[in-house]
Design a protein around this nucleic acid. Sequence first.
DNA 1: TATTGTTATACTCTATAACTATA
DNA 2: TATAGTTATAGAGTATAACAATA
Lengths: 126, 126
Amino acid sequence: MELVPLLKQHWTAAAGQFDLTPAQAFALKRLEPGKPVPMNSLVDVLLCDPSNVTGIVDKLEARGLVERQASQDDRRVKNLVVTPRGAQLREKLTERASEPHPAVLRLSAEDQCRLCEILERLVSRF
Amino acid sequence: MELVPLLKQHWTAAAGQFDLTPAQAFALKRLEPGKPVPMNSLVDVLLCDPSNVTGIVDKLEARGLVERQASQDDRRVKNLVVTPRGAQLREKLTERASEPHPAVLRLSAEDQCRLCEILERLVSRF
DNA sequence: TATTGTTATACTCTATAACTATA
DNA sequence: TATAGTTATAGAGTATAACAATA
């Protein structure tokens, strides 16, 4: 919990390099190019209210990074599709965010390795 | 980074139990009873602008959880002191926040132990 | 000149509630 | 009745800039 402000700062800086807010960047990072998903699915990723997703997607769409598409199966649903421009930005963002935080580099190589493994298992159970 | 929303949700829930916002709870948790610290020091903990600290402390002070005290050494500085009521709430908060997240409990006992050790080393280098 | 803390402002995130359209 | 998404709204966090008091 003590690390949350640190992580937040790291992520905000990474997102800011591409003129994205943290939440916008989170959403973009979770949208896989070529795999449309309902707006709905972002609620589980961002852990926020559906009404927030609207605003976040609005801004991404206004910049031409994602598009809303009417679903064929359920006319209530709008699917989100990453545009080519969005995919390009997403890749750069992912690359930038993969850079380890300086504090992590101060750990031993063994600790870094173990931390990585354990966190992967933790994420997969989330 | 994928865990940030999860951590945030966990912390928001813990803080909410005591009618504190996440930032207020963070500040209170970092103020040790009996050890006055300048407002300034919260900037490094919350990693935010000094102007935000004013507002966050305002709300804690309005609830009688902390107090501003003029510093003897430097008349520009205001020291923050946790009140008895603040100390009581802080203890409950710390206790509540120490409860492991369900996702962590799904890890093996060995992983939990290692994660704890590594994170402690990480925090100490922060 | 530089620093501590404040104020004013604007933007984003966030939840709540009420709404439309579908199912 | 229930669900997907929107709108309106209000509260909180955040940074920027300008300011007063002090160093």
